[in-house]
């Protein structure tokens, strides 16, 4: 069964059709690239899928169940995690605390019992911390757990945001331009990290302008232009598709 199904998803802002009848599906374990020129509606798609804005029409299903108008925090519990194009870290927290926030939805000792002094709550917190440190190790920030989040370099902040999303142990991880603003060295590190995630069988939906990254990583690519899907297919096919070339470069007259 498909992990994520996007069915005729539509979002109008006044007269602007930001997303206009978009349909695509993501299989478990797949890496899907979502590309298109600026203003094509990619981030709006992400916001619709994660429930930050209500759609004008259409629906999003996760594992065959429609998400309807479910609030973002319930969608997160169903297995959706995402990062943001402009990094959104909790700046008043340490690096480790940021990742621990990702463990929020899986607290074993919930509700008021978390306030009760006891070994159980401490053990649960220790386990969460262990997972968080593993993830920091994975993204290469193991040494910086106690740094304030806003003291990290830009590229490190991007990786921290990915670690925080991974702490949610999501079914589907959506990355919104993870390579934006990174230098070539940092992009290479990111590529290595994403390849590791692919090997772990994590399903990824990636918005990205860096074509090397998209071509090297994705199983399939969905191309958006003016809010509509203009092509879907493996990267090799997509790069030769005349409609895609036209969307990016304009028509030759």
């Amino acid at each position: 069964m498909e992990l994520l199904t996007v069915n005729h998803l539509t979002k109008h802002f006044g007269g602007v059709k930001a997303v206009d009848g978009v349909s695509f599906a993501v299989e478990p374990g797949e890496i899907i690239g979502l590309i298109g020129p600026n203003g094509a509606g990619k981030t709006t798609c992400f916001n619709l899928i994660s429930g930050l804005i209500p759609p004008t029409g259409g629906e999003v299903s996760l594992q065959g169940e429609s998400l309807g108008t479910l609030a973002p925090y319930y969608r997160a519990r169903r297995g959706l995690a995402r990062t943001f194009q402009n990094i959104q870290l909790f700046s008043g927290m340490t690096v480790l605390e940021n990742v621990l926030t990702g463990c929020h939805q899986r607290q074993e000792v919930g509700g008021l019992r978390a306030l009760w002094p006891g070994a159980k709550a401490r053990r649960a917190e220790a386990r969460a911390e262990e997972l968080a440190r593993e993830l920091l190790e994975l993204v290469g920030l193991a040494e910086k757990g106690d740094f304030p989040a806003d003291a990290l370099a830009y590229g490190e902040q991007r990786r921290l945001e990915i670690a925080r999303a991974l702490a949610q142990e999501p079914q589907l991880l959506m990355l919104d331009e993870p390579a934006a603003g990174l230098n070539s060295r940092e992009t290479e590190d990111l590529m290595t990290l994403l390849t590791q995630l692919r090997e772990r069988g994590i399903t990824l939906l990636i918005i990205e302008h860096d074509m090397t990254l998209i071509m090297g990583l994705c199983h399939r690519v969905v191309v958006l232009d003016h809010g509509q899907v203009i092509a879907v297919g493996p990267p090799a096919t997509i790069r030769r598709d005349p409609r895609v070339i036209e969307a990016y470069l304009g028509r030759e007259d």
Binding site: S50, L52, A71, P72, Y73, A76, R77, A81, R82, F84, Q88, F90, T101, G102, H104, Q105, R164, Q168
Partner: peptide, 8 residues
């Protein structure tokens, strides 16, 4: 908004 996305 980010807190919501984290399941809070």
């Amino acid at each position: 908004v980010t807190a919501q996305v984290m399941g809070i």
